[in-house]
Computed example of a mutant assay.
Amino acid sequence: MNILKTVTGTTKLIGELTVLSFRLTLSMLAAAFRCVIPPFKKSLLGETVLVTGAGHGIGRELAIKLGGMGCIVICWDINKDRNLDTKNAIVDAGGEAYDFVVDISNRIEVREAARLMRKYRVPDVTILINNAAVLMHKSFLDHDVDDVERTFGVNIFSQFWTVETFLPGMLQNKKGHVVAICSLCGIYGVTQKVTYCASKFAVRGLMNGLREEHKSRPFVNFTTVYPFYVATGLAQDPKYRFSWIFGAISPEYAAAEVIEAVQRNYNDYIIPKWLHPLNFILGILPQSSVDLILNFLSSKKSQK
């Protein structure tokens, strides 16, 4: 009897492994196909998009571009004047936009802003873009408590508050997209940015967890975007070798790439896109090799 059970169990396991191998093969072929022919772009016409940090940098460019694509844009920023300027730029161009002054690190303010949106009959949010961030360029031991709390409040806690506020409506309406503007500092540690890196690693974990938790609901998408270095004034120029590859990109370019990632429903997207192969290579190398490559690339010595 025990022998029969063992044989039956072994046969079942072999069958499951065969099915798994077949599905893995199909998955890898599909991924290879998508490298050559990307998914079709979905239309964003008529979508209601909330952009945090809309008063400056990538957030401003995102809001303006999305307004020009026929989206209803909701601008959130702690800076009233900058936020209003973004909203007016959209309206002056013939788009529809709303502006709300919100400290997104404050859960109560996030909830109150959502209540005001309902009061003013703003359409339900269908795309949430968590873009706002702060970065303090200091060594770890030079940070004080306020630096750490502010960094985590804006960079990660705010995303908990916005997602918990708007995700239920997306699930109820069976339509939605959550986007997190993370950073390559959410994949690789960087000196003088330890607190920032930690907050961005947390963003990556949040989005991966949300995607896994809601994978049975394909009508809601989760996209994490990893910009390398965008010339927004947030960070100091890292001075990498080969500036034609690792130089700063403009907020306009970054915003266009974010929108493409949303339209194609990518799970993860690195900006600029030509860094994808390097990230893949670094992902399969031992840490000692990764350190050698990164040290070489970050050298400030000019090439002979």
Results as ranks from 00 to 15, higher is better:
L84I: 14
D124A: 08
T195A: 11
I90G: 13
P286H: 10
K300Y: 06
Y240W: 15
M69A: 10
Q303I: 15
D147E: 10
K300M: 13
V148C: 08
H214G: 08
G9C: 02
N267E: 15
L62G: 09
R241D: 12
A132R: 04
V49D: 02
E213G: 12
L292M: 12
Y229I: 01
L167S: 07
F152Y: 15
V110G: 07
N130S: 10
S27L: 15
T191E: 11
L171S: 06
S139A: 07
W161G: 03
Y188L: 11
V154L: 13
R264W: 14
F100L: 15
P39D: 07
I281T: 09
Y253K: 12
V49H: 01
F160L: 14
K301H: 09
D77V: 05
N221E: 15
P168I: 07
S216W: 04
C197V: 06
V36P: 02
D92A: 14
A235P: 03
A235I: 01
K215V: 14
V7P: 02
E213V: 13
V36M: 15
G176Y: 06
I3L: 03
V73T: 13
S298H: 08
I181Y: 08
K65I: 14
R264Y: 13
Y229Q: 03
E16H: 10
L282P: 07
I64S: 02
R204I: 00
K174H: 11
D146C: 05
K87T: 12
H56V: 00
Y266I: 10
I129E: 05
P218V: 07
V178Y: 05
N79I: 06
E252P: 01
